[in-house]
Amino acid sequence: MAYSAEISRTSPTAILFLLDQSASMQDPFGGAKQKGDAAPSKARVLADTVNKLLQNLILRCAKEDGVRDYFHVGVVGYGQRVQPVVRPAAEYGVTDTLIPISHLADRPLRMEHRVKEVADGSGGTTKRRVQTPVWFDPEAKNGTPMCQALDLAAQSVRDWIDLHPHNYPPIVLNVTDGEATDGDPLRYAQQLRSYATDDGEVLLFNIHLSESEEAAVEFPDAIAEVPPDEHARLLYQMSSTLPFSMRAAAEQEGYRVTLDTRGFVFNADPAALVRFLEIGTRPSTLR
């Protein structure tokens, strides 16, 4: 059965984020703009969300003896440039886009100190200072070179698969608020998804951040569910169906899923973005 390889320190999987950093990411989410709120930009929300997710992924891998490398992780931004935005410390000598997660854990860009209310163990709450790691800051400039980003992702996963041919295949999560400005991304997406390990093809999931107050279309299982919009349908076609473990995670979040459900969300608000990333990074049980 595909997508059933055990994920362990000796058999990690890879998770690669592709983040739109085009100029339009300076705008707030669609609904917020129309209400005239002083809402944060999409770029800010996205950076905060992905930094938080990296933190959670590290915590899933953290044990008393350190961080176990269940995942190799990469974050590529595409806007003014197409490049990795998260890099490990120079002493690791790693130049790959996909980095063992323990290397990220050891060296965030900076630690922010925040005060958090936590349970005090006897029914009340107490304030505790927590350290919050930040790996990258928001950016929003120029066009949307999505094709170049998908091409860089394809090179990265191909190299990674050469070294890990039997592992759970890489997962690529693409977050965008607009149309590609450098060509037809479907071709690049098909190329990326054609790479495979013994356990299955590379998974590509896409999420489109909202421009309007329309409700999000989350995890559709037929193109008829997607708005009759060329861009939306293109992203749907680019997206892989969810493997078993992620269907289970989606069901737990209350979504109705079928074997045809795709890892795709159109017109997402910030909450839908969080759910999408959470479901898309649940490949299977860690061992």
């Binding site: 933190q55 953290a62 044990k63 854990a105 350290q131 790691p133």
Partner: peptide, 25 residues
């Protein structure tokens, strides 16, 4: 749980951020 809190307190010194966060989970 009280025994666990005592154990955690004893471990808290000089932990990396992820261990501190993890142990509080």
């Amino acid at each position: 749980r009280a025994a666990w809190r005592t154990f955690v307190k004893a471990q808290e010194q000089d932990m990396p951020w992820y261990s501190a966060a993890k142990v509080h989970e």
